[in-house]
């Protein structure tokens, strides 16, 4: 690929998705865009690139952005955040919302659905402790293609073994030849929609918990700060934000502070969690999931 072509794709991605394509990721262009070129009937990637320089088809641009946004995920990815969700966050929310009896969760990079479904399974397991409660899981992603996959809820044998305890597979999946299909009652707990993190978040409503894990790493500092600040406005004052293990708010924004003693969890300044030193609801997180 020519250097000027790399610049074209880098600028296109930055503009449409906010995603920063480092020079070290240029190898991804070939492997991910060649199938798109084929799909659109271009004999070579260069031919597609030339077409992009003219008046590009909007759907072609969408396909390119979708192909370039990373979709690595697994059920209960990294495990620990889900234990904290179950043992710390749910415990706090139960005490803190005794009259409202509602929990609104946003998965900001739902990908093929493993994260929202993992959360749904935890909520299902905990349902007996929450009589009369309403759980809402809003799951968004920038890629329609991956969202359709998520809505479908069908996973390969490999995918259902990555992080999913066997008891959950037995309880919440049915086998469909070589594939595994998630049960309808888990599927019904998740509401999918297309959303670009660069857009106005007010349209999504307010949330008690936001999962935004392993997404910020793909943005530059300025965009990270903007996303976090706008997320803060959609989060209840005692709400909790989950970031990925390699992500932080430190040095990026003051909209969030690390939740004391709980790695990967963030709360807003002035939140009850920070005022009480995080002691409230901070239970034993060592228990195994299943």
């Amino acid at each position: 690929m020519r250097i000027t072509d790399f610049d074209l794709y880098r600028d296109l991605l930055k503009e449409r998705s906010g995603l920063v394509l480092g020079q070290d990721k240029s190898y991804l262009l070939d492997s991910r865009l060649s199938p798109i070129a084929r799909k659109w009937g271009y004999p070579t990637l260069d031919a597609m690139t030339d077409a992009l320089r003219g008046v590009p088809d909007k759907d072609l641009v969408n396909d390119i952005v979708e192909a370039m946004t990373t979709n690595e995920t697994s059920f209960f990815r990294d495990n620990k955040p889900f234990e904290m969700f179950k043992d710390v966050v749910l415990k706090y929310m139960k005490e803190g919302r005794t009259t409202r009896k509602e929990l609104r969760i946003w998965c900001a990079a739902a990908s093929s659905g493993q994260e929202p479904y993992s959360i749904a399974m935890i909520l299902k397991e905990a349902a007996a402790q929450f009589p009369g409660w309403r759980f809402t899981i809003k799951a968004t992603d920038i890629s329609d293609q991956i969202l359709n996959q998520a809505r479908e809820g069908v996973y390969s044998q490999f995918e259902v073994q990555r992080g999913l305890p066997i008891q959950f597979l037995m309880k919440y999946f049915t086998q469909d030849e070589e594939k595994w299909r998630i049960s309808n009652d888990i599927k019904a707990m998740v509401n999918y929609g297309n959303f670009n993190l660069l857009n106005d978040m007010a349209t999504l409503g307010r949330f008690d918990v936001i999962f935004c894990r392993n997404v910020l790493i793909y943005f530059d500092e300025k965009t990270k700060a903007s996303i976090l600040e706008r997320m803060g406005k959609q989060l209840e004052s005692d709400g909790i934000l989950f970031l990925g293990g390699a992500e932080t708010v430190l040095g990026i924004t003051d909209a969030f502070k690390p939740f004391p003693g709980q790695r990967g969890l963030y709360a807003q300044p002035g939140s009850v969690h920070l005022a009480q030193g995080g002691a409230r609801g901070a239970g034993n997180t060592q228990q195994a999931l299943a």
């Binding site: 495990n79 044998q157 073994q161 990555r162 066997i166 999931l289």
Partner: peptide, 25 residues
Amino acid sequence: MQAGADEYVMKPFDSEIIKTKFSQI
């Protein structure tokens, strides 16, 4: 599982699967 197994891996497997299963139990 009824016979008392703690986890179940379907071949083919990789190190990541074995690792997460070992960790979960």
